[in-house]
């Protein structure tokens, strides 16, 4: 009979909580930078400029059709051969941003294309300039339309970040693996890790709902 012993987990809870904070920080930064990449990618893709569209097509297809593990290995172990060397934590962030950027580009592109042409024309008729039209008439309603898919992609990003320990970056999963290597209390550690990841995902999803209530409900203020 397996003897449960949560002592090693409680003794090192600070280590795990610090790991959780690292995961939150890494994911938040990847979400913000990833959102920027996604919007730029979607704009480039829906712009009429052909070479730009092809470039984004290649980026999106390459990233969406290769495993994240291979991408992060390529960035960390492969790029130094080309003279680009990053610390593990930076490489992890870059890999996550590039990955989520490709998925985000497609999602936001779909949102932009869901805006009826008539709406843009209405904006023009109201005398809005092109920047205002993009911001208020296209981007904001587009984000509202695809908000659920985008945020679930972001939560998936947070969960995916658990593999960054393969390049020795620090996060919640690597903190758990280190603790496991010292105490061998695998069941207890991974049970607590499961709970922590769930709480993190739940926290993010609560935060996303709040953002939605503030920025994306009708009547569209601001």
């Amino acid at each position: 009979m397996y003897q449960f012993n949560f002592q090693p987990v409680f003794d090192n809870l600070d280590l795990l909580l610090y790991g959780a904070w690292l995961t939150v920080r890494l994911s938040l930064m990847a979400m913000i930078l990833g959102l920027i990449v996604s919007v730029l990618g979607a704009v480039a893709k829906t712009s009429g400029i052909r070479p730009l569209r092809w470039l984004i097509d290649v980026y999106v297809e390459v990233i969406r059709n290769t495993p994240f593990l291979v991408q992060i290995f390529f960035i960390f172990f492969g790029l130094p051969a080309a003279g680009i060397s990053m610390s593990p934590n930076v490489a992890a962030l870059v890999a996550l941003v590039i990955n989520v950027g490709a998925y985000g580009t497609e999602i936001i592109r779909a949102g932009i294309e869901s805006i009826p042409q008539g709406q843009v024309e209405a904006g023009r008729a109201l005398g809005l300039n092109p920047v205002q039209i993009f911001r208020y008439v296209i981007l904001k309603p587009a984000l509202r339309n695809i908000y659920p898919s985008l945020t679930s992609q972001f939560i998936y990003l947070m969960l995916t970040s658990s593999v960054v320990s393969v390049i020795s970056a620090n996060d919640l999963a690597s903190a758990g693996a280190d603790l496991n290597a010292q105490t061998f209390a695998s069941f207890e550690i991974y049970l607590v890790l499961t709970i922590l990841y769930f709480l993190l995902a739940f926290g993010f999803s609560t935060m996303f709902s709040a953002i939605r209530r503030i920025f994306f409900t009708y009547p569209a203020g601001r």
Partner: peptide, 18 residues
């Protein structure tokens, strides 16, 4: 101290100059 999952990854980190 950078901990990798196995010797192969640790060696890879050394060889790639990481």
């Amino acid at each position: 101290i950078r901990r990798f999952d196995d010797d192969a990854s640790a060696v890879q980190a050394l060889m790639s100059g990481q």
